[in-house]
């Protein structure tokens, strides 16, 4: 069974982002980038399914600038077989990402697409659902456990207040939540081996899909900064303040 894993290159979660002085976006120059953490979980899950003998081929895909080859190389080092970069320097919004991924799915015919539930830059939480809709496939979002058996996938979903278990016919789209697994670390020998694995670069324009943004960013601002408050001397003072001043207990 072939699995397709889309990966987004995002500003690393440890970076404190700064809003640009002209309020057009956030500062991206000289900032560390890495794979979207939820997508790393997706790669790890695909690799585990391969180790379990369920998956026979893993294709990883990224849509972004030339530098996104790095996150693809890392995924290859973790165990993916080959990579495709749909290269563009333009902003590609989730609906357009889903359209590009749909095209790749039609060409690659995976039985399963696993991707992160959301990217930690735009926090949209849409791409998996949108892709499932465009392909007319079932979706299992916010997955914390996957069981594949007899042409179906049982997805345990993290929902508000607990878990929901759905059984989806394959092919299907699954989006990952935090508890699905803990991604392994890269090993140096695997990084070296990954350099020999195929990475195909396709200009986004060559796919002939309208990826024009539908949301125009008018302005980006810093949220109101919190001010440091006061230090209290002891527990009694603290509880007093919380009860009588802040009135929250």
């Amino acid at each position: 069974m072939k699995v397709l894993v889309p990966i987004k290159r995002v500003i690393d979660y440890n970076v404190k982002i700064r809003v640009k002085a002209d309020h057009s976006g956030v500062e991206t120059a000289n900032v560390k980038y890495s794979a979207n953490p939820f997508d790393e979980i997706a790669v790890e899950e695909a690799v585990r399914l391969m180790e379990a003998g369920i998956v026979s081929e893993i294709v990883v895909v990224s849509i972004g600038p030339a530098a996104a080859q790095d996150v693809l190389r890392n995924a290859l080092a973790l165990g993916a077989d080959r990579a495709v970069l749909v290269q563009t320097d333009n902003e590609i919004q989730p609906l357009a990402v889903a359209k590009l991924l749909k095209l790749l799915c039609l060409q690659e015919s995976p039985r399963l697409v696993i991707l992160g539930k959301q990217a930690i830059d735009d926090d949209s939480n849409q791409t998996g659902q949108a892709l499932a809709a465009l392909l007319n496939w079932p979706q299992g979002t916010f997955a914390s456990k996957l069981v594949i058996e007899d042409g179906r996938i049982e997805v345990t979903r993290e929902i508000d207040g607990g878990l929901e278990i759905l059984s989806l016919a394959l092919p299907a789209v699954v989006t990952t939540d935090l508890r699905l697994n803990e991604p392994r670390y890269l090993s140096l020998p695997n990084i070296m081996k990954a350099k020999k694995k195929p990475l195909e670069i396709r200009p986004a324009a060559s796919l002939d899909i309208n990826v024009e943004p539908r949301l125009i960013t008018v302005r980006v601002e810093e949220p109101q900064q919190r001010q440091a408050g006061i230090k209290v001397a002891d527990v009694t003072t603290l509880l007093n303040k919380l009860k009588h001043e802040a009135k929250v207990i």
């Binding site: 939480n125 849409q126 949108a130 809709a133 943004p213």
Partner: peptide, 23 residues
């Protein structure tokens, strides 16, 4: 934007060729 709404609405948006505005 609960797990229910986040699950359903992008599916509606994409089918209707709309870019959803999240949260």
């Amino acid at each position: 934007a609960t797990t229910f709404g986040k699950n359903v609405l992008p599916r509606v948006a994409a089918t209707l060729d709309v870019q959803q505005i999240s949260e």
